[in-house]
């Protein structure tokens, strides 16, 4: 592994403001240049930072400023319009509440599918399966279609599977807010274990206590740009001053 786990430089991504007015086919093939086509806005722009292996980063910012978009870019499920994201090593993503589960498949099948897509062999999924179900407290729902689970159960399953992946980078969006207190505490202990084992954490939250608990370093995103990259205490101080 190189010096950095995540290298982001000059990152920018733009979205359309509305669904109407699709781009012409010609403009889609044009290279992503600096100009901003009509009706589009930059959700993130000129973002640069590096993350060392084992660091834990908290991303702070108001709603709609591009925090989740940044996570998706790092997770590789969205592609940048300009700049680059380099991630060395695999990513265990916990983004969006669903975390990539399929509604029609049962809990059992979903665990196999997600594990398989993250490179677990059949035997490995089998050997970890009981642990995953036990952690998620879903012993009685193994053959229930995923769509029939309650929201809390879905989050429990998602966290349980993703935290079992052997990927060196863990990405957590605000999903954990849904679970009940006991389970959240269980998840947090698991995250702490993973951090202690040297994983890199990329964490988005509005909860100051959680941010201070897990993260050493903070990134503050305001007006779609990275305005501060400092220790989490300083970042939170600035953020609170801005929004006082």
């Amino acid at each position: 592994m190189g010096e950095y786990a995540i290298e982001v430089s000059g990152l920018g991504v733009r979205f359309r403001r509305n669904r109407r007015g699709r781009q012409s086919i010609k403009s889609m093939f044009a290279s992503a240049s600096r100009r901003t086509p009509k009706g589009e806005f930059w959700a993130l722009r000129d973002i640069s930072f590096n993350v060392k292996p084992g660091e834990s980063i908290g991303v702070v910012g108001r709603n709609g400023q591009g925090k989740s978009t940044l996570l998706k870019l790092v997770a590789g499920v969205l592609l940048a319009d300009e700049g680059t994201v380099e991630v060395h090593g695999g990513v265990a993503p916990l983004i969006e509440i669903t975390g990539g589960f399929v509604g029609d498949l049962t809990v059992r099948e979903n665990v196999r599918l997600t594990g398989g897509l993250h490179g677990m062999s059949k035997a490995e999924v089998a050997s970890r399966y009981d642990g995953i179900i036990e952690f998620a407290e879903l012993e009685d729902f193994q053959d229930t279609p995923y769509k029939h689970l309650s929201n809390g159960m879905k989050v429990r399953l998602a966290f349980s599977v993703v935290s079992q992946l052997d990927e060196p980078i863990l990405i957590v969006d605000e999903v954990l807010a849904v679970g009940d207190k006991t389970f959240r505490e269980k998840c947090y202990r698991r995250i702490e274990e993973m951090l202690a084992a040297g994983r890199t954490l990329f964490f988005v939250s509005h909860n100051e206590r959680d941010l201070k608990r897990f993260c050493e370093r903070g990134l503050y995103i305001r007006d779609h740009r990275l305005v501060m990259d400092d220790s989490i205490e300083n970042v939170l101080k600035t953020y609170n001053a801005d929004n006082a």
């Binding site: 090593g89 695999g90 990513v91 498949l105 099948e109 599918l113 398989g116 897509l117 993250h118 490179g119 677990m120 062999s121 490995e124 052997d166 990927e167 060196p168």
Partner: peptide, 25 residues
Amino acid sequence: MSTAIGAPGSPRRNLHSLWVLSARD
């Protein structure tokens, strides 16, 4: 780390993903 099939993004990992999805279908 050693238990995963291929490194992320490696041809072997991608083939495995392709197979997992096709087998599900």
